[in-house]
């Protein structure tokens, strides 16, 4: 019987596939929120496995902030085409115009907060009852407390005090009209698990995850890509360095790390040795307040 043993990646994969199949069976209109980052790329890979040899039975939805890395957008389009997935793109830009929203000001005007509006509108437009996201519980304190099936009210809001108990591997996705569920199939994976899985499964990633040369602004010790979305000032310190990205979000809120890692093995060994956690190193928005994520989630964020 000793060959009937799963290693930790196989166990995580089996759990995530189980969750994907529950989503497809329990909801009428699920959607996978795809960002082009490694976590959502892993999600798509797992979804393909869950429903093979059939197609993924729900669309991929990208909420495009307009501040994305071009490499991530190219990857998105090529990937969706190659697996014949339905891809729905909705732009934050359009929501800003239609709703006369006020954009954030400052040096790095983040649309992170505004994308919640576009997301909620998209949910409304397509009547999505479940949105699948790539959040992991190891990322952040609020996420550590969120269920795998996380029920949101009509306003997309998360109420940490009113969560359903989640027992065994039984997922209760029953909701009332107007509510929807955010589902996180890779809740139990850590950043390193994701990287090891990507390597094991030989999953292709956008090129920005590997070392490349880029012009950057040095801001409070963080390296931010020079782009049209960042407010340039005469006092800016501009440098050119070999860097890679550890997470891929908006160009305004993702910082780069100096790196020469050209292969997955090199990336993994750098991450294993890294002494700064993923969010702290590369997300500019979480530094604002200690409870930043808790606040955003309560307002309908992923």
């Amino acid at each position: 019987m000793s060959n009937h043993h799963l290693n930790y990646l196989e166990q995580l994969e089996a759990e995530s596939i189980h969750i994907f199949r529950e989503i497809a069976a329990q909801f009428e209109r699920p959607a996978l929120l795809f960002s082009g980052g490694k976590d959502s790329i892993t999600l798509v890979h797992l979804a393909r496995k869950a429903f093979a040899p059939g197609k993924i039975p729900f669309p991929l939805v990208h909420i495009d902030t307009g501040h994305n890395f071009q490499e991530a957008l190219d990857y998105r389009d090529a990937m969706a085409a190659s697996i014949h997935a339905d891809l729905i793109v909705r732009k934050v830009e359009d929501t800003i115009k239609a709703k006369s929203l006020t954009e954030a000001k400052g040096k790095f005007p983040s649309r992170n907060w505004l994308q919640t509006y576009t997301l909620l509108d998209t949910i409304e437009e397509f009547k999505f009852d479940a949105c699948i996201g790539g959040a992991r519980r190891d990322e952040e304190k609020a996420r550590a407390k969120e269920r795998i099936f996380s029920v949101r009210d009509d306003f997309g809001q998360w109420n940490p005090k009113l969560q359903r108990p989640e027992l065994w591997n039984t997922y209760n996705g029953r909701i009332n009209k107007g509510e929807n569920v955010r589902v996180f199939p890779i809740s139990n994976w850590t950043e390193l698990d994701i990287w090891n899985y990507i390597k094991h499964e030989n999953i292709a990633l956008p090129s920005i995850y590997f070392s490349h040369e880029r012009e950057l602004i040095v801001h409070e010790g963080q390296l931010v890509a020079l782009s049209d979305f960042v407010l340039r000032e005469s006092t800016d310190v501009i440098v050119t360095k070999r860097i890679r990205y550890r997470t891929v979000g908006d160009m305004t809120c993702t910082a780069a790390v100096e790196s020469n890692a050209l292969t997955l093995d090199e990336v993994i060994s750098e991450i294993t040795a890294a002494k700064i956690s993923e969010r702290g190193e590369t997300r500019i928005d979480d530094r604002v307040t200690e409870a930043a994520m808790e606040d955003r989630k309560k307002n309908g964020y992923f």
Partner: peptide, 10 residues
């Protein structure tokens, strides 16, 4: 502490 939280280490 109001709820179950999950922690990860290896």
């Amino acid at each position: 502490t109001i709820d179950v939280a999950y922690r990860y280490f290896s």
